[in-house]
Write a protein that binds this DNA or RNA. Structure first.
Lengths: 140, 140
DNA sequence: GTGATTGCAAATCTTTTGCACTAAA
DNA sequence: TTTAGTGCAAAAGATTTGCAATCAC
């Protein structure tokens, strides 16, 4: 489970997904994948890009996030209305959601187990099981 | 676990929550609670209201849904970005989410069990555990 | 009366879209 | 070249807000 860190490794990852390694995609990929287990909104990634002097439009950030998700480099997590988080950890796992800060934190799959999953209705199959453990500050 | 159905019962429920039983709130409460286990978006409830000749503004529908949620008459469920569902079942339970139709279906809590919940970080406590079983059509 | 509630329309926020321009292969 | 990718600004949705009018108590 070694995580690829090199520039050329990122290019390879994009190519596997059939995505041309453009300047913008590479820059966003570096911001996303050179640290582990990130949970970012489109807006946060856009800000990081601007801070890192990477000129990217919001539209491209959205396009890129969705393309990365489609080819399995990211996973979309929905925990609050009106905002999507993108998770750089695409392994099977779950999340703590901190209501006071809006932050997400991974729960490795061996630390939480869903038992007795019911059968899905006929003609359908389970695509994914998402567990969100919503956490709040004690006496806020 | 009898569900209250009468008009005066609804008034009582609102009053318990400290909400004045206004024409709009009562009408929305009837639409929401006179059937069981509903999962509605604000827009869907607004449409139902108009169809039932209940004049309510969108703003009031949103206000009402959030007020009902705050006093425990409803539960907000987030499964897709940019749309909130409100669930009339406030008991402990989970959900099937049908990706093809956008529908939600309750999973009673005895049909799904989360084991080995990890401890939340210090200073925090678990507010709720949401499990969403995402289901898709076989060969779409 | 008077404070809570409502309606309306405008504002806000996130995300998507259309299309001319640019760059990778 | 030729086609994919990008930026921009406008559009689209969902939700919220501000404020005067209205209603419950």
């Amino acid at each position: 489970m070694t995580r690829e860190r090199s520039y050329s490794g990122l290019i390879a990852r994009l190519k596997v997904g059939g995505l041309r390694p453009t300047r913008q995609r590479l820059a966003l990929a570096r911001l996303l994948f050179e640290r582990e287990d990130r949970h970012l909104t489109a807006e946060q990634l856009h800000s990081e890009a601007l801070e890192a002097d990477v000129r990217v439009s919001v539209a491209t950030v959205y396009n890129t996030l969705h393309q990365f998700t489609k080819v399995g480099l990211l996973r979309e997590v929905v925990v609050e209305p009106g905002r999507s988080y993108f998770d750089t950890n695409v392994d099977d796992h779950h999340h703590f959601y901190f209501e006071s800060t809006g932050d997400l934190q991974d729960i490795p799959k061996d630390q939480l187990h869903v038992a007795e999953l019911p059968e899905p209705p006929g003609g359908t199959r389970i695509a994914r099981v998402d567990v969100v453990v919503r956490v709040q500050d004690i006496e806020p």
